[in-house]
């Protein structure tokens, strides 16, 4: 029963949604819409679960006297305070203040630091050892040049080259990648819907 009911739920829900894609029946459409709304609410609960897990993880850190547990204290204090402000005074200036002066600078600075990392990746991984590395490096440099604002003003030839590069090598090969990934997604979805794969019970049948 521990496995049968979840598998049945996954298959039945899947069939209802797929049927709604294929035929236009009002009651089926209503049923599919109810299921989708349920998925949205459950996705909200899943976020709550993720954050509860985060709290539990940090609580364990403190309980077990793990080195660096002062960081867990910061999380355990700042998280409930933010939730309290956000739920008690949702449209207040306090909540906006937290977003503007705490969340935004932290997130943007972390994002900006990625440039140092990305450039260092080049140092570490781009010695031109073989043909593939040379193609990658040349492609990277060409596309960086094409990203420069106003580069099209230098010569109409550059604009034409940019268009051609996006239409052919990038467009064609990205389409190949998209198709390959789409086939993979279809296969993976079919495996879940046919219950060959049951990630929700932690079981994958060998095939």
């Amino acid at each position: 029963m521990r496995k049968t009911i979840p598998i049945a739920a996954a298959v039945i829900c899947g069939i209802v949604i797929i049927a709604d894609y294929l035929v236009q029946v009002p009651w089926l459409h209503t049923a599919a819409a109810r299921l989708l709304e349920g998925a949205v609410v459950l996705a909200g609960f899943a976020l709550v679960l993720g954050i509860l897990n985060l709290l539990a993880f940090n609580f364990r850190h403190i309980r077990d006297h793990t080195p660096g547990r002062w960081q867990s204290w910061i999380i355990l204090i700042s998280l409930p305070i933010t939730v309290l402000i956000g739920t008690t005074f949702p449209g207040s200036g306090a909540f906006t203040w937290v977003y503007t002066y705490v969340v935004t600078p932290l997130m943007t600075a972390l994002g900006a630091l990625l440039l140092f990392y990305a450039v260092t990746v080049a140092v570490r991984l781009l010695p031109l050892r073989n043909g593939a590395a040379i193609i990658l490096f040349a492609s990277c440099l060409v596309f960086m040049i094409l990203w420069i604002p106003g580069i099209s003003s230098v010569s109409p030839f550059i604009a034409a080259v940019r268009n051609w590069l996006y239409a052919l090598p990038v467009g064609a090969s990205m389409r190949g990648l998209l198709l390959g990934a789409a086939i993979g997604a279809v296969v993976a979805s079919l495996r879940i819907l046919s219950s060959l794969e049951q990630p929700y019970t932690g079981i994958t049948e060998k095939h």
Partner: peptide, 28 residues
């Protein structure tokens, strides 16, 4: 397991329909 089963079933079917109609067929 039950809500996760529902989430996966719904997600997989929506992905299947969307991928076929939005990527696989138009891109082919």
């Amino acid at each position: 397991n039950l809500p996760l089963g529902m989430l996966f079933g719904i997600g997989a079917s929506v992905t299947l329909g969307g991928t076929l109609a939005g990527t696989l067929i138009p891109q082919t």
